[in-house]
Design a protein around this nucleic acid. Structure first.
Length: 949
RNA sequence: GGGCGAUUAGCUCAGUGGUAGAGCACACCCUUCACACGGGUGGGGCCACAAGUUCGAACCUUGUAUAGCCCACCA
């Protein structure tokens, strides 16, 4: 197969990917090999590939392909996340477009529609990951809602519950009125908005005056339960214990003391609304209110509802808390107007307010009193903190780069209970069933209101819940299950009430209602490192591949996902989920701003792949990934790596057209020629540097090493140096040794480059095979080079001399305006013995690349010369008629200046007694050697200048 | 209010106490038989600033400035 003249990534990408996938190349049978495991952060089923995925997955694929080349049993687990909120929103939006809404359907019908949507439109990203060349184990693709994984999720819930690490509690939760669900602390983002600070006067009950309070949320005064002042605040000491009469509702509320009240702020007195403010909730509890008695004045959409004492005037009921589009008025506006009308509005200030928003909905979060399920994160965090402290070497895990440790520890050490229930339909339904209240006398309540304060049974399934219920209520009942509480409250109230008439209880059915809420998506994805491997079954895969070797993750999900994986993994597996946690940065727009759809500054990775090829994009990601830093998008660098791929392509074309290529052993071939011994050494040092970079997760370092190996060493020098043997030589073709060594070196390069540029390397690997003896295996299964050949110092010295001579010759020609093609004769009056030998061997190379036809070991008889100093030799070129002597004088003077400056700097250092005494001996020795070298060079150059007259 | 980094060539970024590097861009030269997505040769840096430690600092310490990000209950 002849390599095409032009390199077209698109022409080969699909071909090789399909080949790999169809031959099972991503997961060869290596059951006896050392396992190596990475689980891919499951992308949302609604997602499509963005630039951050491109980075994240490229890094993982580099590690996985590298491990595979090392012969390991490399497993890259892949799958998708059901993404509760995001997916439900997508499907709901679709229904809305057809003038339908979720609540037009039963829960089962709606969930069926989501599955339908997933089958038709979900998982677009999996095709896009293939385009990026990612070598995941698609054969065993998982989904967080598939049967086995769901089983794991339910089991975890039940076990945590039974261990007392998961509980139901009524407290303030971050409520998203747009999505109408609770969300966790992490899903709330605080933004600064321009708001106002309203100062109200609350009249004292005895009409003896007013107490002034300030608030950013005037509407919540309808549910105020107290006014707090600081216990040390003497201004108010005489009022503590008195009541104020709340305007509008007329509710009498006490003036209490609490440290929360800041004397410096506003009037120093603060209104306390325990049902709608996190601080006030705590104050309220300290003041003796029970959560169940705290007034709630809003519904799940943020509209006013009557408080338990019924004091909110009717005209407020149903109003939104504050302005929304299309509503003529709102509670906030009406409250402020009413207070003003009463003459109780003291003043209004403009003020920047820290306001919580839902990260998905963009709605202002409402602290809302509800019953939710919480995980005792503090208990689970302790061993996860320990594991990170211990590090990989001691059975824990490393965080790379280390700079993230502090962030991790700080968050984990101050972790709050994790609210895991969500009021959605799409997700893992919570395995909890509620039964009616049982009285001490053994009878069972039939009161509707008791249904929500009933007994809860947490169990893996309905049968298990019923068994628990039988144990609790006793024999003799008929137990039934209803799917959800909402089904019950919406549709079946009458039926149900009749079924459970209290005095007939002994003969009645008991219906258990399953908790209708679903679990936070992160609750399930936290199990990804072991749930995907078959847990709770003790599978072979689980035993082999847990703990995973490394987790690659953006730092933006350190708390959401990584920390929770650590907690759940350690708790349920008794071992860390992964040995290394590698955190990478964000890919930013060219101007450094965050990419976002709303800003319209996103860069589509697929567009970059179309334009430059997947290999180029991948190489860019690796090259730019330096630890602890975000990546700024720079398309010109992607283009640069496309050029790099083209360079390699053409080098391979050159090789092919000269009979280089074919299958070579992994160990280096024997070589006599210096150039071959040199390139073998270069391959060896490249492998060593790459291995070091892999060990340290320095992706930029890896890219740098292989890039310069290919471009500088292999293409610019090695291939050029072996050309003369056949181009200018008499044989008309390359010597066999160079063919073999070049083929071997190119093979090693392809293998080393494969993790970064899988497609072009696979293509060239096969294109370069000997037609008579095709490759025995694909490069994806090749063997990673081992640095077992010698680095030959003598060969390096020889090639360095040749390279230096050629470079300096080119340089003086360019500076003296001598056409580069001009052929010259070089004179060396008194060559070093080694120099003559080198010239004897390297004549053809010096001629072809340096345009030096001959070396004469005698002085020249003219002063019209250009001179260069190479090592210990002064090489002189007679240039009668072509040389501009002034230009040459100035050129040499500049060189003298440079050499002298360095010499003098070194001399200065060496004459400093303190340096000689205290510096490391190696440093002193090196300074001496450098000084001698620079001094000799300066001397030779000075002599050269003198020779010009 | 805490925390984390960042600041190095025009741009994007490496840099491990011992005289500053890469890619792109720029200038000049080269239609040399793998490659113009190329080759060659150059120019271009008070390493943000200040003090300290050290024989020696881009690198270690402290402070300052600038522009970021994360966390946190100022009503």
């Amino acid at each position: 197969m002849t390599i095409d003249k032009t390199f077209d990534p698109a022409a080969i990408e699909a071909k090789w990917y399909a080949h790999w996938e169809s031959t099972g190349a991503f997961r060869p049978d290596r059951s006896n090999a050392e396992p190596y495991t990475i689980v891919n952060p499951p992308p949302n089923v609604t997602g499509s590939l963005h630039i951050g995925h491109a980075l994240d997955n490229t890094l993982q694929d580099i590690l996985i392909r590298h491990a595979r080349l090392q012969g390991k049993d490399a497993l890259w687990v892949v799958g998708m996340d059901h993404a509760g909120i995001a997916t439900q929103m997508v499907v709901e939006r679709q229904l809305n477009a057809q003038q339908q809404k979720r609540t037009d359907f039963t829960r089962d019908e709606f969930v069926a529609k989501v599955w339908e949507w997933k089958a038709e439109s979900g998982g677009e990203i999996t095709g896009q990951l293939r385009r990026l060349g990612c070598s995941m184990d698609w054969e065993n693709e998982r989904f967080t809602m598939d049967e086995g994984f769901s089983e794991a999720v339910i089991k975890v819930f039940v076990e945590l519950y039974n261990q007392g690490l998961l509980y139901r509690d009524k407290r303030l939760v971050n409520w998203d009125p747009g999505l109408k669900t609770a969300i966790s602390d992490l899903e709330v983002e605080t933004r600064e908005i321009n708001g106002k600070f309203w100062h109200f006067k609350y009249p004292l009950e005895d009409n003896s005056g007013f107490i002034s309070v300030a608030t950013t949320r005037p509407e919540t005064m309808l549910a105020d339960m107290a006014v707090a002042v600081n216990p040390s605040d003497e201004r108010y000491a005489h009022l503590v214990g008195k009541n104020v009469r709340l305007p509008i509702t007329g509710r009498l509320i006490p003036i209490v003391t609490d440290e929360h009240a800041d004397p410096e702020l506003g009037s120093g007195a603060v209104k306390i609304t325990p049902g709608h403010d996190f601080n006030d909730f705590e104050v309220g509890k300290r003041a003796g209110f029970k959560a169940s008695d705290m007034f709630n004045m809003l519904d799940g959409e943020g509209r006013v509802v009557q408080t338990a004492d019924g004091l909110i005037p009717a005209e407020y009921i149903g109003l939104y808390r504050f302005g929304i589009e299309g509503e003529p008025t709102n509670a906030r506006k009406m409250v402020v107007e009413a207070i003003d009308a009463l003459g109780l509005l003291e003043k209004v200030e403009d003020r920047v307010i820290q306001t919580p928003f839902g990260d998905r909905s963009g709605q202002v979060i409402e602290p809302w009193l509800t019953d939710q399920w919480y995980v005792d994160a503090e208990t689970l965090a302790k061993p996860a903190i320990e594991a990170a402290r211990k590090g990989k070497a001691n059975g824990g895990f490393d965080i790379v780069p280390k700079s993230w440790e502090k962030t991790y520890f700080n968050w984990m050490e101050n972790i709050q209970p994790w609210c895991v229930s969500r009021q959605l339909w799409w997700g893992h339904q919570i395995p909890a069933w509620y039964g009616p209240k049982k009285f001490d006398d053994g009878t069972i309540s039939t009161e509707f209101s008791d249904m929500s304060k009933n007994h809860v049974f947490v169990a893996v399934d309905w049968e298990a819940a019923r068994d628990e219920a039988v144990a609790y209520y006793g024999e003799g009942y008929t137990f039934k299950v209803a799917s959800t509480w909402r089904d019950f409250t919406d549709r079946n109230i009458e039926n149900f009430s009749m079924t459970l008439a209290r005095d007939e209880a002994r003969a009645a059915e008991i219906v258990l209602y399953r908790d209708e809420d679903v679990l936070d998506t992160w609750f399930s994805s936290a199990l990804w490192p072991f749930g995907t491997l078959g847990w709770p079954d003790q599978t072979t895969e689980l035993n082999r591949h847990y703990p995973n070797d490394v987790l690659i993750s953006g730092f933006d999900i350190l708390f959401f996902w990584d920390a929770r994986m650590a907690m759940q993994g350690i708790h349920f597996m008794k071992e860390v989920p992964w040995k290394t946690l590698y955190l990478h940065g964000l890919v930013r727009a060219a101007d450094g701003s965050k990419m976002s759809k709303s800003k319209g500054n996103t860069v589509d990775p697929l567009g970059l792949i179309d334009q430059y090829g997947a290999d180029a994009l991948r190489f860019f990601m690796a090259a730019m990934e330096s630890q602890g830093r975000d990546i700024k998008m720079d398309e010109s660098r992607v283009a640069g790596y496309r050029n790099f791929a083209t360079k390699l392509w053409n080098a391979a074309r050159f090789a092919q057209s000269n009979g280089i290529g074919g299958s070579h052993s992994v160990s280096a071939p024997k070589a006599d020629l210096a150039v071959n011994r040199w390139i073998i050494g270069e391959v060896v040092s490249t492998v060593e540097k790459l291995n070091k970079a892999f060990a340290e997760f320095r992706f930029d370092g890896m890219a740098d090493v292989i890039y310069h190996m290919v471009f500088d060493q292999f293409c610019d020098w090695y291939l050029e140096l072996i050309k003369p043997a056949f181009v200018d030589g008499e044989k008309g073709e390359m010597d066999e040794e160079s063919k073999i060594v070049a083929g071997w070196a190119l093979d090693q390069i392809l293998v080393m480059l494969h993790p970064f540029m899988p497609v072009i390397t696979e293509e060239l690997w096969h294109a370069l095979s000997d037609p008579a003896a095709p490759r025995a295996y694909d490069i994806i299964h090749a063997k990673w080079p081992e640095p077992n050949a010698t680095v030959d110092a003598e060969a390096i010295a020889e090639i360095n001399w040749v390279v230096d001579t050629i470079s300096k010759t080119r340089s003086f020609k360019a500076e003296l305006n001598i056409p580069p093609g001009t052929r010259l004769t070089a004179n060396i009056a008194e060559p070093q013995a080694s120099t003559a030998a080198i010239i004897g061997r390297q004549g053809p190379a010096l001629s072809r690349l340096g345009r030096i036809d001959a070396f004469v070991y005698a002085p020249v008889d003219t002063n019209n010369v250009a001179q260069i100093v190479v090592g210990d030799d002064t090489v002189v070129f007679a240039l009668d008629g072509v040389i501009d002597l002034d230009a040459e004088r100035s050129r040499i003077s500049k060189a003298i200046e440079a050499a002298t400056k360095e010499r003098d700097a070194l001399a200065g250092r060496l004459s400093n007694a303190a340096f000689v005494e205290r510096a490391k001996p190696e440093a002193v020795e090196k300074a001496r050697a450098d000084h001698a070298e620079k001094a000799a060079e300066a001397e030779r150059l000075t002599a050269a200048l003198a020779r010009l007259g």
